[in-house]
Amino acid sequence: MVKYDITSINSKGVNKIVKGSNKMDLSQELDKIIAKLKARVEKEIPDTGYFRNFAENFEKGKKPDIYARDISLFIERDEARDGRAYLGVSVLHPEINIDAASYIMNGDRNKILEYMNNKDFKEELQKAVLELSESLKNVK
């Protein structure tokens, strides 16, 4: 699953993107990807059988105002349990092609939607993003 368009980025390219990008409000941008992902969970995760992994990223050209190049909320099929998926968040390193990712929960379509609709979910996600961003500072 490709979650980031990394094909055209090199170290010079990263600098260009950082300088020219619009800073955005982390909370607002998270709201956007949560809404988009929920719509896709509803549509794309079947009761049983195969489905493709998918993800929603921040709008192109917008750099998060934290130590990261991009943030992605993703759904990854659980290969061991039919009809289930992992909901996770991934934060892409500002300069190199590695992300720090954390799985938030696992469940079927309804469980995932129920979890994402919970009032505490946004706060949990925001906390995870900040922790993952911090962890990238230790990456060589």
Binding site: N53, F74, E76, I98, N138
Partner: peptide, 24 residues
């Protein structure tokens, strides 16, 4: 930070070649 170093080619989160990933 607790670290897990494993070949990232098959971990599912990546579609990068081995050479494109972090040194660790």
């Amino acid at each position: 930070l607790l670290t897990i170093y494993s070949d990232p080619r098959g971990l599912g989160r990546y579609n990068y070649t081995l050479e494109e990933t972090a040194k660790q």
